[in-house]
Protein backbone atom coordinates (compact mmCIF):
# COMPACT_ATOMS: atom_id res chain seq x y z
CA UNK A 1 0.00 0.00 0.00
CA UNK A 2 1.28 3.47 -0.88
CA UNK A 3 0.28 6.82 0.51
CA UNK A 4 -0.36 9.40 -2.25
CA UNK A 5 1.76 12.57 -2.14
CA UNK A 6 0.33 15.66 -3.83
CA UNK A 7 2.37 18.61 -5.04
CA UNK A 8 0.99 22.14 -4.70
CA UNK A 9 3.41 24.85 -5.87
CA UNK A 10 6.33 24.68 -3.49
CA UNK A 11 4.60 22.38 -1.08
CA UNK A 12 3.82 18.71 -0.69
CA UNK A 13 0.44 17.71 0.73
CA UNK A 14 -0.02 14.30 2.24
CA UNK A 15 -3.15 12.96 3.85
CA UNK A 16 -2.65 9.62 5.57
CA UNK A 17 -5.89 7.71 5.12
CA UNK A 18 -4.81 4.14 5.77
CA UNK A 19 -3.95 2.17 8.87
CA UNK A 20 -0.17 2.48 9.04
CA UNK A 21 1.66 -0.81 9.19
CA UNK A 22 5.43 -0.76 9.56
CA UNK A 23 6.22 -1.34 5.89
CA UNK A 24 3.79 1.33 4.70
CA UNK A 25 5.31 3.79 7.18
CA UNK A 26 8.86 3.13 6.03
CA UNK A 27 7.86 3.24 2.37
CA UNK A 28 6.12 6.53 3.08
CA UNK A 29 9.29 7.97 4.61
CA UNK A 30 11.25 7.04 1.52
CA UNK A 31 8.62 8.39 -0.88
CA UNK A 32 8.44 11.78 0.88
CA UNK A 33 12.21 12.26 0.77
CA UNK A 34 12.40 11.21 -2.89
CA UNK A 35 9.61 13.59 -3.80
CA UNK A 36 11.27 16.50 -1.96
CA UNK A 37 14.43 15.79 -3.87
CA UNK A 38 12.60 15.42 -7.18
CA UNK A 39 10.52 18.62 -7.10
CA UNK A 40 12.57 20.72 -4.68
CA UNK A 41 9.77 21.39 -2.20
CA UNK A 42 10.26 23.90 0.60
CA UNK A 43 7.45 22.71 2.81
CA UNK A 44 5.50 19.53 3.62
CA UNK A 45 2.15 19.14 5.38
CA UNK A 46 1.33 15.68 6.68
CA UNK A 47 -2.31 15.41 7.72
CA UNK A 48 -3.06 12.71 10.31
CA UNK A 49 -6.78 13.38 10.86
CA UNK A 50 -7.74 9.82 9.90
CA UNK A 51 -4.98 8.13 11.88
CA UNK A 52 -6.45 6.37 14.91
CA UNK A 53 -3.25 5.22 16.54
CA UNK A 54 0.41 6.23 16.65
CA UNK A 55 2.70 3.86 18.52
CA UNK A 56 6.36 4.41 19.31
CA UNK A 57 7.50 3.00 15.96
CA UNK A 58 5.27 5.20 13.85
CA UNK A 59 6.11 8.17 16.08
CA UNK A 60 9.78 7.53 15.41
CA UNK A 61 9.19 7.28 11.66
CA UNK A 62 7.27 10.56 11.67
CA UNK A 63 9.90 12.30 13.80
CA UNK A 64 12.59 11.00 11.46
CA UNK A 65 10.71 12.26 8.39
CA UNK A 66 10.66 15.73 9.97
CA UNK A 67 14.40 15.67 10.78
CA UNK A 68 15.39 14.23 7.40
CA UNK A 69 13.23 16.69 5.46
CA UNK A 70 14.74 19.55 7.46
CA UNK A 71 18.18 18.34 6.40
CA UNK A 72 17.01 18.52 2.80
CA UNK A 73 15.76 22.06 3.34
CA UNK A 74 12.02 21.36 3.60
CA UNK A 75 9.94 22.31 6.65
CA UNK A 76 7.36 19.78 7.82
CA UNK A 77 4.14 20.43 9.73
CA UNK A 78 2.05 17.61 11.19
CA UNK A 79 -1.67 18.39 11.27
CA UNK A 80 -4.89 16.89 12.55
CA UNK A 81 -3.47 14.70 15.32
CA UNK A 82 -6.59 13.42 17.10
CA UNK A 83 -7.07 14.09 20.85
CA UNK A 84 -7.02 10.37 21.68
CA UNK A 85 -3.80 9.93 19.72
CA UNK A 86 -2.20 12.97 21.39
CA UNK A 87 -3.12 11.74 24.88
CA UNK A 88 -1.75 8.28 24.13
CA UNK A 89 1.54 9.73 22.90
CA UNK A 90 1.86 11.88 26.03
CA UNK A 91 1.07 8.85 28.24
CA UNK A 92 3.83 6.94 26.48
CA UNK A 93 6.23 9.80 27.13
CA UNK A 94 6.60 10.65 23.45
CA UNK A 95 6.55 14.42 23.10
CA UNK A 96 7.71 14.96 19.49
CA UNK A 97 9.45 18.04 20.86
CA UNK A 98 10.76 19.77 17.78
CA UNK A 99 7.90 18.89 15.47
CA UNK A 100 5.70 21.78 14.30
CA UNK A 101 1.97 21.06 14.45
CA UNK A 102 -1.29 22.66 13.34
CA UNK A 103 -5.00 21.92 13.72
CA UNK A 104 -5.73 21.01 10.12
CA UNK A 105 -4.38 21.06 6.59
CA UNK A 106 -5.43 24.68 6.03
CA UNK A 107 -3.76 26.00 9.16
CA UNK A 108 -0.75 23.84 8.42
CA UNK A 109 -0.33 25.54 5.06
CA UNK A 110 -0.77 28.96 6.69
CA UNK A 111 1.91 28.08 9.20
CA UNK A 112 4.36 26.98 6.50
CA UNK A 113 3.67 30.08 4.46
CA UNK A 114 4.18 32.49 7.35
CA UNK A 115 7.37 30.73 8.43
CA UNK A 116 8.85 30.55 4.95
CA UNK A 117 7.74 33.92 3.69
CA UNK A 118 7.18 36.09 6.76
Amino acid sequence: MRIPILKLHDYLLISVQVELDDQTALKFQEDVLNKIHEVGSRGVVIDLTSVEMIDSFIAKVLGDVVDMSNLMGAKVVLTGIQPAVAITLIDMGIVLDEVPTALDLEQGLDKLQSELEG
Binding site: E52, M53, P83, I87, T88
Partner: peptide, 17 residues
Protein backbone atom coordinates in the same frame (compact mmCIF):
# COMPACT_ATOMS: atom_id res chain seq x y z
CA UNK B 1 -14.14 5.58 25.17
CA UNK B 2 -12.10 6.78 22.21
CA UNK B 3 -9.07 7.74 24.30
CA UNK B 4 -8.90 4.38 26.06
CA UNK B 5 -9.43 2.61 22.74
CA UNK B 6 -6.35 4.41 21.42
CA UNK B 7 -4.41 3.52 24.58
CA UNK B 8 -5.33 -0.16 24.32
CA UNK B 9 -4.65 -0.36 20.58
CA UNK B 10 -1.28 1.32 21.00
CA UNK B 11 -0.28 -0.99 23.86
CA UNK B 12 -1.16 -4.03 21.73
CA UNK B 13 0.84 -2.62 18.86
CA UNK B 14 3.91 -2.21 21.09
CA UNK B 15 3.61 -5.71 22.53
CA UNK B 16 3.07 -7.31 19.13
CA UNK B 17 5.99 -5.44 17.63
Amino acid sequence: GSVDQARITTAISELAR
